[in-house]
Design a protein around this nucleic acid. Sequence first.
DNA 1: GTGTCTGCAAAGAATTTGCAAAGAC
DNA 2: GTCTTTGCAAATTCTTTGCAGACAC
Lengths: 132, 132
Amino acid sequence: MKIRAKIKDAGLKATPQRRLVYEIMQKLQHAPIDEVADEAQAAVPGINVSTVYRIMESFCEAGLLSKINHPNGKTYFDITTSEHHHIINEAGNVTDIEDAELTELIKERLKDKIGEGQIIEKISIQIITSEK
Amino acid sequence: MKIRAKIKDAGLKATPQRRLVYEIMQKLQHAPIDEVADEAQAAVPGINVSTVYRIMESFCEAGLLSKINHPNGKTYFDITTSEHHHIINEAGNVTDIEDAELTELIKERLKDKIGEGQIIEKISIQIITSEK
DNA sequence: GTGTCTGCAAAGAATTTGCAAAGAC
DNA sequence: GTCTTTGCAAATTCTTTGCAGACAC
């Protein structure tokens, strides 16, 4: 689907800044805001960091992106929005792992360990790797 | 073991500030720095926030505490240092789950998905819960 | 046209750092 | 006594906000 259509389908106006940010995220797959902002500013000098923040946030709310809890403290964003897991290496680079069966298995195993009256919203596994 | 001994065994000097911070962490189990700092300042008015930051950091390096990737962006610390998992509820409160067998199972299942020449440093599952 | 979005500059959180005095061992 | 740690204030880094003009539809 074209970027313009994706953004509009998500209920947002397809501004040039949003189209650019989405395109950058399609390329990067996973990235912290400052990296996206740098790429954006390289492409279109006028674009502002706060705009990028607002766009990333609106994309998350609209279901176009998801957030990653990254060990380096910065907020990372992910072009993949379906339930999945992450491998994070020493450099902080993120790789996706899709394994719905595993997610289901964990959910089943831990479902009675969560509090009374609570439901599981999301399960995410982080695998931190280092050089052998 | 006494707090003083724990700190010294970890190779750090057992200053009053460190003993206090460790005691607070034993009570809270999981907490962000500002909460620890508030508790510390309530107990001993002179203690400084930057000191608490430095203490938490030194405790992590010394293996007395571990860091938690918390979805609210702040760094949370955990008195438990052995491999384990977390349930995080809507309020941001953290609960531990110990399940070494599950960790092993996941490790076995995903070991060939990590990159060439890499080893798994750590596996952590986060379960985000919400009200039913 | 109208309501949303952007740029800018300023404010606000969270965290770090430099340095001199204080304290642990 | 020596080397580490602390307190303080200032600097950095990351993120959010207010507002006026610009733009999507």
